[in-house]
């Protein structure tokens, strides 16, 4: 049982983050929840949530916005598509990041800092600038497209376009988020005790079995951590599909932004945001449960 001073210091320490979450997450989310049941105002924004007629107080709320979500396939379809894009991004990131993280973790100590620096080097230039760079790479006049089409036309196939497609969006999503997978994975792999691999080999495991039975399961917490860092921003992103996706590569983030900015339909924008937030929260909780180290997770006495 912690004593009073300890409890007090705990409360004081958790006060700033607690307040931060309350004011900037919980309160806005509740405001959005409220907004999702209101009508939108004549010139955008929100209509009053009650009116008084003949001295009679009447609530002016509606379920219309939520019904609209389910009335057509568009929004749920877009939500599913966004989930698929984010999932594909995460999987590709795992596949690409794992060998690299493993290589860095097993390289000589004095090389590791340099290799990690190279991983985070892209952060030194602006996010939007890097997306514009991909616009140049993918553009129909770009060298990449030209080279690919030289091949396709020589094979007698239709010319292809890279720009404004789901492929372009996923490619850029992977590019932007790859470091967020590499770093937690590296942090995990770097801590592995190489003697465990010696022991496994000594007990008869070949190189593949050593990896699959020892390194891989021990690195799962790192993968879950990286997956959260890649999946969640990928799911809600709108800048990349805005610039590279065109109409084909549109994601749920674009629609939400559209509702708030262009359509000025705040209530429906709130509905979509809340659904996205709920999905994200569920996935984070799942990852947190999976991501706690195996020994600790199962080691509760």
């Amino acid at each position: 049982m912690p004593n009073r001073a300890e409890r007090l210091s705990r409360i004081l320490l958790s006060l700033p983050p607690g307040l931060y979450l309350l004011l900037l997450f919980a309160v806005p989310s509740l405001m959005m929840l409220f907004a999702s049941f209101r009508f939108s105002g004549e010139y955008g924004g929100l209509a009053p949530w009650y009116y008084i007629e003949d001295g009679q107080f009447t609530l002016d709320l509606t379920l219309e916005n939520w019904q609209r979500l389910f009335e057509s396939d568009i929004y749920l379809g877009l939500l599913l598509k966004s989930l698929a894009y984010a999932l594909a991004t995460t999987l590709i990131c795992v596949i690409m990041a794992y060998p690299l993280a493993l290589m860095i973790a097993r390289s000589k100590k004095r090389h590791r800092d340099l290799l990690l620096l190279l991983v985070i080097l892209p952060f030194w230039s602006n996010f939007l600038v890097r997306i514009y760079a991909w616009m140049i790479i993918f553009s129909p006049q770009g060298a990449l497209t030209a080279a690919l089409n030289a091949v396709t036309s020589s094979l007698g196939l239709e010319p292809i376009t890279l720009m404004f497609s789901g492929t372009a969006v996923i490619t850029c999503l992977v590019y932007v988020h790859l470091p967020f997978m590499i770093l937690p994975l590296y942090a995990n792999l770097e801590k592995h005790d190489h003697r465990l691999l010696d022991a496994a080999q000594d007990l008869g495991a070949n190189r593949f079995q050593c990896f699959w039975l020892i390194t891989w399961p021990l690195s799962l917490p790192g993968i879950y951590a990286g997956a959260v860092l890649v999946f969640i921003p990928s799911l809600g992103i709108f800048a990349i599909p805005d610039l590279l996706g065109g109409t084909n590569g549109i994601m749920i983030g674009n629609v939400i932004k559209q509702q708030f900015v262009e359509s000025r339909d705040w209530p429906f924008g709130s509905v979509l945001s809340l659904v996205l937030t709920a999905i994200t929260l569920v996935l984070v909780l799942l990852a947190a449960k999976l991501g706690s180290p195996a020994g600790e997770n199962n080691g509760k006495k």
Binding site: R195, A199, D202, L203, N206, P217, L218, A294
Partner: peptide, 29 residues
Amino acid sequence: NPEQRPIHTVFQSYALFPHMTVAENIAFP
């Protein structure tokens, strides 16, 4: 290779696999 030798080692650090139960550890070889 070490995995082909009918020789096992007990390491100073034990080198038990932390993500496996005692039974799974012993069953490993």
